[in-house]
Every structure is written in C-alpha cells, then in structure tokens.
C-alpha cells in the first residue's frame, strides 16, 4: 500500500493507494505515529481497494483521539469501500464527504 501524507494547516491529509488490511494497517499506524500538531485527519480513499476491520479500528482510534466524527473525514470514497462502511455501520462514526 502506498501512503501519501501532507500537512495542511491543522489538517493531516492522507492519501491511500491499495489495500488497508491487517498488515498494512500496522504500517499506516506506524507511519502516522510520528505526526503531531493536527486537529483533523482527512483520508482520500479514491484509490483504496479494500478496507479491513483493522483499518476500521485505526479510523476509530483517530475519531477517539481527535474528539469526534467531525475530525475524521473521508473523501472520494469509492463504491466498494462505501459499502464496507455502510454494512459495518462505520459510516455513522466518521464524516464522509
């Protein structure tokens, strides 16, 4: 999985390409661990092919850390990932734009 990060003011922009599964979730967690000083996190899921429950847990961890669903924003969510978010009920836990 490719991870592209960019800080935009107080928002951390994260663009993901590939599959967010058990192994790559751990990689993403490690990659974001060093990031400081942001109040919002914005994930671009345009090229995300798959999202596992460990990926969902990572998103939930940021929801908790940043203080609410409005601080975790998902953009360009493709149909497949949107369906995973819908079926698991996770679409209620984050902000989807």
């Amino acid at each position: 999985m490719n991870i592209f990060k960019q800080k935009n003011g107080t928002t951390l922009e994260v663009k993901l390409e590939g599959r967010l599964d058990t192994v790559t979730s751990a990689e993403l967690t490690a990659s974001l661990e060093g990031e400081e000083g942001f109040t919002d996190i914005r994930f671009d899921f345009e090229k995300l092919e798959y999202l596992s429950s460990s990926g969902l847990r990572l998103l939930f961890a940021y929801r908790k850390k940043l203080g609410g669903k409005e601080h975790v924003i998902l953009v360009n969510v493709n149909a497949l990932v949107a369906e995973i978010l819908r079926v698991t009920g996770f679409n209620q836990q984050v902000t989807i734009q």
């Binding site: 599964d21 798959y50 999202l51 596992s52 429950s53 149909a79 497949l80 369906e83 995973i84 079926v87």
Partner: peptide, 17 residues
C-alpha cells in the same frame, strides 16, 4: 459479485488473522 467478495474477504481476514 464484487461487494460480496469484499465482505467475504473482510470476514475471512478476521478469522485467519
């Protein structure tokens, strides 16, 4: 069925992992 295949992968990954 692309969506069902993704759900199957999601569920299977949990048990296998």
């Amino acid at each position: 069925d692309e969506k069902a295949a993704a759900m199957l992968a999601l569920a299977s990954e949990e048990i296998i992992a």
